[in-house]
Design a protein around this nucleic acid. Sequence first.
DNA 1: CCTTTCGTTCAGTCTACACTGAACAAATCT
DNA 2: AGATTTGTTCAGTGTAGACTGAACGAAAGG
Lengths: 171, 171
Amino acid sequence: MPSRTLPEAFAESRRAFIEAGGNTTQSLGMGRIIGQIYALLYLSPRPICLDEIVDELGVSKASVSTAVRQLAGWGAVKRVWVKGDRRDFYEAETDFGAIMRNGVLDVIRKKLSTAGTQLAKIEESLKAAQASHNGEANEELALLAARLKRAKKFHDKLNSVLGSSLLEHLL
Amino acid sequence: MPSRTLPEAFAESRRAFIEAGGNTTQSLGMGRIIGQIYALLYLSPRPICLDEIVDELGVSKASVSTAVRQLAGWGAVKRVWVKGDRRDFYEAETDFGAIMRNGVLDVIRKKLSTAGTQLAKIEESLKAAQASHNGEANEELALLAARLKRAKKFHDKLNSVLGSSLLEHLL
DNA sequence: CCTTTCGTTCAGTCTACACTGAACAAATCT
DNA sequence: AGATTTGTTCAGTGTAGACTGAACGAAAGG
């Protein structure tokens, strides 16, 4: 028979871990529920259904529904079917490296991509300016062109680093 | 004499670049002013004083004051003294790699560090639980211990990757 | 010494977005 | 078929934090 202090001490560690997960994702700009849900699943020995998450965390079903889908979207959580139960169950992907490779890096790449789109638009707009200027020397214009080129170069470098398998190999 | 369309086309490119900077930093969870200020300085052939930034961007002096200090904090912007002018002038650090190494990575490392602190606290709390339990086998407790260990291991891995000069060499 | 010019600070406002509640759709059971 | 259970959606709320305005302090000029 377990001692009386065991359950509380265990529950406390568990609660702290879940809270830490929430703090982490919140500090990264995604809400705190995301991290809490992942932590909860990460510590669970068995798949958990949506309503159980709701009870455990004391948040709305709507939040859990959307958050869980996000997590599944980047492979941090997997849907699991339990026989004889029509509810959806979820379990955590415990391989952090896999989550990084499949999910997180994609998010970063996407942000980089939108930045690249903006740079391309500016480059076009700049070409128009250079065309209408046609041969005249203009200090500011030349600087803008040079700096834009630099920015694009760095953008490409980031892209290649993120695209290379080197980074994935590290995680 | 410059053609009439040159100034507008130039200004448009410039405006778009500044806006792109704002969009980028905003999408990264830091405000949009930060990126706008950096972009403005990045495109300027000469150091710029605080009030000029205020005029150019149409934001409050308070915002510029704090934002500029943040930028200077992680080496993205340098204070410059102009002789015969007691105002503070600023210019951009144009080496993105240097900004990454000196500023951005430190921010990430700091976030990692606070996460590590939380993990350490949980580990201690868990040790207490294990002590009071003293020899009994408990599935949940064992799982929590195992998963915590995994989490710490990954945390350490991230730390070493960020600490290694390899990453800095890439940027 | 008073005035002016700059930069910072801080209490308050505004805004983006995480989060909620209730209505809804879909699937299963009786 | 209706009734019940389960997940999603969406308009609305709450809130964290970016941003502002006014008051302040510090430094230089008159």
